[in-house]
Design a protein around this nucleic acid. Sequence first.
DNA 1: GCCTTTAGCTAACAACATTAGCCAGCCGTG
DNA 2: CACGGCTGGCTAATGTTGTTAGCTAAAGGC
Lengths: 190, 190
Amino acid sequence: MPRAGLTPATVTGAGAALADEVGIAQLSMGLVAERLEVRTPSLYKHVGGLADLTHRIAVLAMTEVGDAIGDAIQGRSGREALTAAAEALRTYVKAHPGRYAAGDGAQATGPDDPLVAASERLLGCLSAVLHGYGLPPEEEIHALRLLRSTIHGFATLEAAGGFRIAADVDESFAWIIDRLDAGLQVPVRR
Amino acid sequence: MPRAGLTPATVTGAGAALADEVGIAQLSMGLVAERLEVRTPSLYKHVGGLADLTHRIAVLAMTEVGDAIGDAIQGRSGREALTAAAEALRTYVKAHPGRYAAGDGAQATGPDDPLVAASERLLGCLSAVLHGYGLPPEEEIHALRLLRSTIHGFATLEAAGGFRIAADVDESFAWIIDRLDAGLQVPVRR
DNA sequence: GCCTTTAGCTAACAACATTAGCCAGCCGTG
DNA sequence: CACGGCTGGCTAATGTTGTTAGCTAAAGGC
């Protein structure tokens, strides 16, 4: 029997692809093994188990999202950067709903967990977008959370089929970015 | 052996309570049975299975959220209603993270699914909040989606422990509501 | 007080994650 | 080119969990 030549990365990749196809909740070790044309127990030579695999998929997703947004905002700023970043995230979630869902609910196991680095990278990109709005430093964290919450919420609701009414979702998204942009420009008034 | 006197509602309630305690992903039929001091197979006389139970918990959560928001916005309008609604949702998610999570990802099985009615109720409440802003009718759907995305995103990220930096989350939330309010008041400029 | 209904039970099965232990393919060294 | 250690993939086996089948006794209507 010739060897399959698996690595942790191969297994994670197959798991991520399957998560996109069948949903993260339906992902099973057996399914991954089948996709890789290998018996289930063989996977345990490369990943610690289903929980570990899910965690690795989450790291992969976070990293890919960070890259996508990082690329998208290159050379842009202000509203243009905001639009590009939001589009990039939304596009990613639509293309890879399963692996993005793995990122939700993933908990870092410690300070050296690669998940920490990946999410910091992502947050750094969103921070960069916000710099163009010249917010007072103490408000940046709030703005960051606004940005993240809105885009994350929109993308996950869309991926979950949450927008029943057929009214053009693209149009809604553009409108939302517009309002976000407006909200960030108005000076505080409290 | 005396009867336990279960009903679909009892089982759903126990499942919802457990989901809040251990997380929706850890919810199992055996756990629910143990909580109700009954053997696992007995539950199948009242709910169709784990998937059905989860769905029922989702409906329960949607209904409760709708009620909470409906109560909160009674007699308020504009910014005050917005704050009340957002606070209500966030409070609910913090108190019942498990059952709210069941609501995420729940798919209506058909037009007569009670989930449809529950979510329409919820959306209706948010719509009512928006009326105070006097938006043009064709923009209401977009504003509704903005509201829902932001609050949902914030609440789920918070529940998932997504806000690492200790910076006061309450303060962030207030700031976000403020900006949302600001963004909804500015006239369109496209 | 009987009789239908049915709630809860035991027994059994299937799917899945996981572990233990075997054996053969690869890779380095001599 | 042989040989030997390492290790990747295998089979076998175990525990957990979801689910179904079929029994029995409790509750409610006549």
